[in-house]
Amino acid sequence: MFSYILRRLGGVIPTLFAVVLISFLMVHMTPGDPFATERALPPEVLKQLHHQYHLDLPLWQQFLYYLDDLIHGNLGYSLKYQGQSINHLVFPTGSQGGFWVSVQLGTFSIIIAGIGGIILDIFSALTKDTLADFIDHVISVFCMLVISTPIVVTAPLSVLVFAVFLHWFPAGGWGTLSDLVLPVIILSLPYIAVITQIARSSLIEIMGSPFIRTAKAKGLSMPRLVWRHALKPAMMPVVSLLGPTVAGILTGSVVIERVFTIPGIGIQMVQGATNRDYNLVLALVIIYSLLVIVFNLLVDIIYAFLDPKIRY
């Protein structure tokens, strides 16, 4: 098991390197001076600045400097907020905000998406072709609707209904439990639907498999049958789906942070893009990619752990 994790870890490093290289090249091969947009600077100051940011060196040396900084946890300096370190923006001291807020939002959403999806899929799969067939139909229609409605629509709509009209939840902010409810539900909703759909068809397939027939022949009750015998194999496709789900939830969190004014790195990303703050956006792209890659690694390990047929 340990060597398996090590080997997977070895596979991650080239991907990570590729991410840094591609995004770095994208930024630095773009014509234009990062300081040209500021008010006209005297040539000697400009030269000084270029030297300070290693911009007077060849590209590959700049890249090595950047890589060295990254390895030491230094994300560089924001162009918009002169002299501000990006580390300070992403991991603010004292006040709440930045990276960990986004990670919290994402984590809660994944948990809700997983639990919600599994519960709905059990109801859906087990009521198919029975007297309670309508439950399956309702859930299927719900999934189709939710999947076709982008977060861009559901997020403001939920604010309009539950905050403006009904006053059940606050329209935005971060900190209390009630602040969490709307953003987390809205962000996880499409993935609840996706997981339900995938898990439903997989559970239906498993429930028809010979080993479930064997378990029935042993006289096991329905709950035990589902819980002990069907759920784990039926969840395997869902586990392998978690990687892309995380990428999607992180992407969606940018919209959610904007609509619900949550002070995460998604908002910084959008502001950086609007202000054309290359360095900030570059750093955030690398952070988001790192999150996705690390999570995909975790998913692979969990999958190998759950599937007895995979040898480490």
């Binding site: 995004s23 930024v27 990687g243 992407t251 054309r276 988001y288 990619s289």
Partner: peptide
């Protein structure tokens, strides 16, 4: 395969940042 695992949306945002 490698690209499948990446959050592409963020690269799109980076593109927009660079080129307006």
């Amino acid at each position: 395969d490698v690209l499948y695992g990446l959050p592409f949306m963020f690269f799109a945002i980076l593109l927009v940042t660079l080129f307006g």
